[in-house]
Design a protein around this nucleic acid. Structure first.
Lengths: 298, 298
DNA sequence: CCTCCTAATCAAAAATACTGATAAAGCGAA
DNA sequence: TTCGCTTTATCAGTATTTTTGATTAGGAGG
């Protein structure tokens, strides 16, 4: 009998479902089945009445649940009292979208890693949809979104910042520096678009829809950096979060312009699940972001 | 943090030694080192002051020990209350010497296995010395010895029976049926001896020593059955525990005889460690032996 | 009846626990 | 001190266990 099994058991009882518990614990459903089977095997007792689809705790099962929860509580107490709860250590899994991972994280991580060498950081890059799923399934500890305001009652937003989406072109392009360019005129141009799942591309297309228009594009590029390169080489115009282009603008490799009908502002949010314990490694990361971007919160 | 680690930790604290704990738990020493390291890693805290050879619990270690013992006690309570403590199930590891394994166990096991199909029985055949070591190291649950009286304060003898060592020859051999054959005369003969570690061979040689004599033997055979075959074919005379030759005597394939100066009686003992919990599977096995050999206890 | 949803099963893959050999390091004796 | 003894640490290789993913089976509810 191992604590792993008891935790799974407790979750199963709470959710009254093997598959829901699996989801919450980040296991496959078959894993939960196996773990419960192990408990039953070891104790020589069935814990659930199975009726095809539905499960119900039987007497022994209820008794075990009491013990399991006591044990798990005692383990928590043990950890709280014995473990070093101040020094960040262990692992920290951060889910981000590509642009944030490339242009926002590096500065922070460099600092974080030197300050807390005992933390093993893992950065997982995926689409917003995917990282949200990862967070739900406990595959990541923290998620950095670039999106409209994200809200979920199970989640805590630890930090957020407004982020403008800006229109960009090569410095020699006719649009460079233009203010209030009519949308119709923009859409004459070839546009370099991010991948279909991208939030701000969605927002933009939604606005276009409102005017019964559509951007023309021969290129869809998943990598923000590549879009930057292409735009610098004047292969089209584009729009990207300001943070990704700050450097290019300052170096005058890119110019920006504004479009009359379009103003997109998104939010960078740092989110974790309410139900998990916010580890020192997480706390330190949150603090690091807050300090690095002081006076820039949303 | 898993209970396995906490049990190891508790044992280490009890023995104040990694290697002793490893021995008691049936682990390699490196396993204990690793398990403790895991605990320390996970808690981010050193539990022992290491001073090369000696280890000493530090403050955090002492605190953890209290919790660990509480947790282990609670686990025991859980098992006691939730698990089916009546039906024999799980595994049963029995250590025996070859002769007992071949001639004593089969009848009992056949019965046992049909009665308790949920028990996975494992029979480990080795020398007396080896099975004693296995018992100490928790590699077996029960040990069946054929030896002089075995006593260890850590062990419980669940059952025992006297066992004569009898001298045997082919029915056509001159010794067949002889009583009080002089030892000197026996030693003229070629003897089929069991392997050097064998208890009753030891006893016999010890007696011979007393008379400044030595058995002559061109053959040492580890397998009791083979000795029986050879003796039946009149390739020598031998001595074996009565239980191994009962059938051969009755079938008149062998004859026995007695030697004036030699009378060896040994004890079959069924032994388990006091410190472990006597599982239902063990209890049932003990009962089975007691019933099968009713009125034959030592 | 069919569809949807859930748990069980099982082979394959991944993770992890364990071992055995060896190294390092302290203790005690010569 | 050095030598031998004992104890823990380290590490590569192995064994075992855990987890997964695909599939099956078996209701529940339309």
């Amino acid at each position: 009998m191992e604590l792993r099994n008891l935790l799974t058991y407790s979750k199963v009882c709470e959710a009254m479902s093997f598959s829901k518990a699996a989801d919450q614990l980040g296991y496959a459903q078959s894993t939960v089945t196996t773990q419960i089977a192990q408990l039953e095997e070891e104790l020589g007792v069935k814990l659930f009445d199975r009726n095809g689809k539905r499960i119900r705790l039987n007497a022994k099962g209820q008794e075990l649940l009491l013990y399991a929860n006591q044990l798990l509580a005692l383990v928590s107490e043990t950890k709280a009292n014995v473990s070093d709860t101040k020094t960040p250590r262990g692992s920290l899994r951060i889910g981000v979208i590509e642009s944030v991972g490339t242009f926002f994280l590096p500065d922070i991580l460099e600092d974080y890693l030197t300050n807390f060498p005992e933390v093993h950081v893992q950065v997982l890059t995926a689409t917003t949809r995917e990282i949200m799923e990862m967070l739900r399934q406990n595959k990541i500890d923290l998620m950095l979104t670039l999106d409209e305001q994200v809200y979920d009652p199970d989640w805590t937003c630890a930090w957020s910042r407004k982020e403008d989406i800006v229109f960009l072109c090569a410095p020699e392009h006719a649009f460079a520096g233009r203010a209030d360019l009519p949308l119709a005129e923009l859409l004459q141009e070839n546009m370099l678009l991010t991948e279909r799942q991208c939030n701000y591309r969605h927002s933009f297309e939604h606005i276009c829809d409102g005017y019964q228009m559509r951007p023309r594009s021969s290129l869809e590029i998943g990598c923000t950096n590549t879009i930057l390169q292409f735009t610098e080489h004047n292969l089209g115009v584009t729009f990207l979060p300001r943070l990704t282009v700050q450097a290019s603008l300052q170096a005058k490799r890119l110019a920006n312009f504004s479009v009359k009908e379009v103003s997109i502002q998104m939010l960078i949010q740092l989110i974790y699940r309410k139900s998990i314990w916010c580890t020192p490694a997480m706390k330190a990361f949150i603090e690091k972001i807050r300090n690095t971007h002081k006076n820039m919160e949303a």
